[in-house]
Design a binder for these strands. Structure first.
Length: 489
RNA sequence: GGCGGCAUAGCCAAGUGGUAAGGCAGCGGUCUGCAAAACCGCUAUUCACCAGUUCGAAUCUGGUUGCCGCCUCCA
């Protein structure tokens, strides 16, 4: 039974979809005016895993993730680049997809753009006007927050408290300082659309109310996004949608925590952000995912090269185990060595219980951190088990190892890690390092052959010399029973 | 000023009433020509601090201290 922490009630609640077996989920995507950073990556990875898990749990999921493609920042960017907003949005939507594909984040069912839904937006504003939740002042349309009794229920604020703390200069045309724009009249040189209130463009929040209703209906299951969107964005979405459609909006609100750098929020204005492109130059995408998923999605996570490097070592360890099992399976012959019954039973039971424990942890508010621990535990146990085997394994043992591998890879599929063949994983890593260091693979093989010959002649000095040489190139070698393998550090 | 969160070993990090997962680093050992990898053992009688509730608390309550986020565009 899945339990989800709901921001609306500040409690973990049992998840009950509106339509049994189906889930409608809307996640606030990005404003496409610049490259994505690690903070965006976290949000996208977190919800990617949530959606994958919901599907794995048997739900038919309709996942909507929008692009905000008209707003002040995009307009500013277009002006400074001497082009129009469509050019800017198209460029960064394309880049978003390149980044997300690299990170293994799946596409949403629908990825709507605000500018493709101006009619739907105008329609919702019209409803709000008709119901007197909104008013027009010289071409601008504002939402009247005090027409909604429950305004503030998501963020836990009261209108009075916020007024006391308001620091921004208030637009004097607003009835209440907390009123927000639904429609902004066009200033000279700005892009605009025709509307009953004149030429203009939508405010920030209204697109999500319009597009979620369009693709999921006015009342749906889950709405997600970064913690920073709780107020005012999501609060205002609730006000708009419930005001216009007079039904409850989203049942469950899920918010992910931030990515920090040196304990400070990563953000454009602080200038401490790392783009996804930047970090993928340095780390394997699965290492980035594993790093992000090693923390609970609601906690802040501190990003550093050291931390991701550590995670990458862990990923390396997981792949090494998968490779080891694959080699065992390959080497298997009819009559193999056996192990103690106890060891066999222990691994049997553990392997059989893996999927159940995975589900248990994920059902508890998507506790991916625990799942990662579970994976490492599995890696450790299987390694220990294989250490007991002195030669080719029996068929029975082989099957057991392969089922363990299947269980691990199956869990990895939901997290979006361990998706590669181990040889491909280590190979890619090799290519990258070899390329950047301009090392020739054939040369490495040649050195290793030379070392093997030296070892045969018990010329340990030469053998160690070659190993040091390789180490200087970040190449680590492992002498196995019958061959020497090498990997990039 | 208002609202919310966090504080667990050298570092990262799970754990929200039943006696501290996991990873990284370190030390000792097995294996190895030596290594590497893997494995074994060791590394928090204790969960910021102080009171309280309870048979029992890292987990609940009250208080103290420190850090952070939101209240303005923000994943």
């Amino acid at each position: 039974m899945l339990r989800i922490y709901n921001t609306l009630t500040r409690k973990k609640e049992i998840f009950k979809p509106i339509d049994p077996g189906k889930v409608g989920i809307y996640v606030c995507g990005v404003t496409v005016y610049d490259s994505c950073h690690v903070g965006h990556a976290r949000s996208m990875v977190v919800f990617d895993v949530i959606v994958r898990y919901l599907r794995f749990s048997g739900y038919s999921v309709r996942y909507i993730r929008n692009f905000t493609d008209v707003d002040d920042k995009i307009i500013r960017r277009a002006n400074s680049d001497g082009t129009d907003i469509d050019t800017i949005s198209d460029r960064y939507i394309k880049e978003f997809h390149v980044d997300m594909d690299a990170l293994g984040v799946e596409r949403a069912s629908v990825e709507p753009r605000a500018t493709d839904h101006i009619d739907a937006i105008i329609d919702v504003i019209g409803k709000l006007m008709a119901k007197e939740h909104a008013y027009e002042k010289s071409g601008d349309v504002f939402f009247a927050v005090d027409t909604i009794k429950e305004y503030g229920k998501l963020s836990g604020r009261k209108l009075e408290d916020m007024e006391a703390g308001a620091r921004v200069e208030v637009d004097r045309r607003k009835r209440n300082p907390m009123d927000f724009a639904l429609w902004k009249s066009a200033k000279p040189g700005e892009p605009f659309w025709e509307s009953p209130w004149g030429k203009g463009r939508p405010g920030w929040h209204i697109e999500c109310s319009a597009m979620s209703a369009r693709y999921l209906g006015p009342h749906f299951d889950i709405h997600g996004g970064g913690k920073d969107l709780i107020f005012p964005h999501h609060e205002n979405e609730i006000a708009q949608s419930e005001g216009a459609f007079e039904v409850p909006f989203a049942n469950y609100w899920i918010h992910n925590g931030f990515v920090n750098i040196n304990h400070e929020k990563m953000s454009k204005s602080l200038g401490n952000f790392l783009t996804i492109e930047d970090i993928l130059k340095q780390f394997h995408p699965e290492a980035v995912r594993l790093f992000l998923l090693s923390n609970h999605y609601r906690s802040p996570v501190d990003f550093s090269n050291e931390a991701v490097s550590e995670t990458e070592k862990g990923l390396h360890r997981m792949y090494a185990l998968l490779e080891r099992i694959a080699e065992f399976a390959q080497a298997q012959s009819g009559s193999g060595t056996s192990v103690s019954r106890n060891a066999f039973e222990e691994i049997s039971q553990f392997t059989a219980g893996l999927a159940g424990r995975f589900k248990e942890n994920m059902d508890d508010d998507f506790n991916t951190a625990r799942v990662v621990g579970l994976l490492f535990d599995a890696v450790h146990r299987l390694n220990r088990f294989m250490d007991e085997l002195s030669g080719p394994a029996s068929r029975e043992i082989n099957d057991l190892l392969l089922s363990g591998k299947e269980a691990i890879v199956g869990i990895g599929r939901i997290l979006g890690i361990l998706t590669l063949d181990p040889r491909e994983f280590f190979g890619k890593k090799q290519d990258k390092t070899l390329m950047s260091a301009q090392i020739d693979e054939a040369a490495v093989e040649k050195l290793i052959a030379e070392r093997t010959a030296a070892r045969k002649n018990k010329d340990w000095a030469r053998a160690d010399e070659i190993r040091d040489l390789l180490a200087a190139m970040d190449i680590v070698i492992e002498d196995r029973h019958n061959k020497t393998v090498w990997k990039v550090r």
